[in-house]
Simulated scan of single mutants.
Amino acid sequence: MYGAYGLLREEEVTRTTTIDLPAVALGQRAFEIALARSGVETVWFERHNSNPVTEIPSHWPEAYREVMQARIDLIEANKDIRLIERSEYKRRWSIEPWDRREAAALRGWLLNAAEQEELWFEEQDGYTVPRPLTVNQLADALRHDEDVQAVASLYAADHLGKRDASLAAVVEAEHVPYAAALRYKDSGLRKRAQWEQVWEQQREEDRTGKRLDIKVPPKYTGADFLKHSYWSNRGKLDVPKERFISYPGASPGSDTSLLLGWAGWNHRDQADALVGFIRSRVESGGWEKEDPRFVPLLAGLREVMPWVHQWYGGHDEEWDGNPAEEFQAALDNGRTERGLSESDLTNWRPEKKTRGRKSSA
């Protein structure tokens, strides 16, 4: 190619070209050997997890060793070739180790299996409703799928060392809590409040057709989130990219594993799930009406309601009613029964865990 562009003479092209190509390992390309010999300070080898090679490998065929030496000589002698034969212009042989690629593939396969839509809905009284599942329930639902069990066993054996915790480990970084106070630190909650104001102004524009002077809300940073996994799933614009919604503290009493919803649920489904939690925990979960665990559930319902009003505020044939009106009534009744104000829900924060030394006897 260099010859075609007139950078090398015909005899130089002949001297540096061959069809007898042995296997060349990372760090053994001509420019890499020349770079290693030059003594120039570089992070190329460290970044690619390779060792600098200064000598042409002796196990190569003699003809290829001569070609390689001719290439190195050209790099050192020809300033034009030397300018191009630099690491900045070379393809990076940066391939993740096989065990990491295998782990990512197995984990992705299991997550796709756990996201099958039919797992997250069920029929009740002729209606299709969202079906929340604890991690244990999700594992039970997949237990009879032979493919899932085979992949889970392989993933656990090679990458976890135990099988029982495999599904919990797989979903650990793929869920984000339903309520803002469970997602953000105080700085993130302040930004969230500004975003909510912007959304309400946009809805006002839609209602009136009058353009408002809406200020651009601040972007989030990793420091605004309570966990790095929440940040990596949401990013600076807080766009949901997680696979699951988590409901910490809302699991039924007989199952303490994390309660999950599907991130593929729309806002109506999310509200329906929360209303279902509130009803079932009173009727069959053994929670007293004054139980403080209801407060975050009602706070989460309050957060999703503006979107339910926006998208499901009219008569819904499938629903056979107005979903927004029904869920708003459930929220209002839930607050009234527990003597909670709107600000009580807005200001709710999870109890902070404290660290400290155990007192000595």
Rank of each mutant, 00 (worst) to 15 (best):
H267N: 13
H267P: 00
H267V: 15
D269R: 07
Q270H: 05
Q270S: 14
Q270G: 07
A271P: 06
D272A: 15
A273R: 04
A273P: 05
L274D: 03
L274V: 07
V275W: 02
V275N: 02
V275C: 11
G276E: 03
G276P: 04
G276R: 04
G276L: 04
F277W: 03
F277C: 02
F277L: 12
F277I: 06
F277Q: 04
I278T: 02
R279K: 13
S280D: 13
S280V: 01
V282P: 00
V282R: 15
V282C: 00
E283K: 11
S284F: 03
S284T: 14
S284N: 11
S284L: 11
S284C: 01
G285Q: 08
W287M: 11
E288Y: 07
E288V: 03
E290V: 13
E290L: 08
D291M: 05
P292M: 07
R293W: 07
R293S: 08
F294N: 07
F294S: 05
V295Q: 10
L297R: 13
L297C: 08
L297D: 02
L298D: 04
L298T: 07
A299E: 05
A299K: 03
G300H: 05
G300C: 11
L301W: 01
E303P: 11
E303V: 10
E303N: 10
V304R: 15
M305H: 06
M305V: 03
M305F: 09
P306G: 12
P306D: 09
P306M: 09
P306R: 12
W307A: 14
H309A: 10
H309R: 15
Q310P: 00
Q310E: 14
Q310M: 10
Q310Y: 13
Q310D: 11
W311M: 06
W311K: 06
W311I: 00
G314N: 12
G314H: 10
H315M: 00
H315Q: 03
D316I: 01
D316Y: 07
D316V: 03
E317R: 09
E318C: 00
E318Q: 10
W319A: 02
W319Q: 03
W319P: 00
D320M: 02
G321A: 02
G321H: 08
N322F: 06
N322K: 08
N322C: 12
N322T: 12
A324S: 12
E325C: 01
E325V: 14
E325K: 14
E326T: 07
E326L: 09
E326H: 09
E326K: 08
E326P: 00
F327W: 04
F327D: 01
Q328M: 07
A329C: 03
A330D: 04
D332E: 15
N333Q: 14
G334C: 06
G334S: 05
R335C: 15
R335A: 09
T336R: 15
E337Y: 01
E337I: 05
E337W: 00
R338H: 11
R338Q: 12
R338P: 02
G339T: 13
G339C: 10
G339P: 12
G339N: 13
G339L: 11
L340E: 12
L340P: 10
L340A: 11
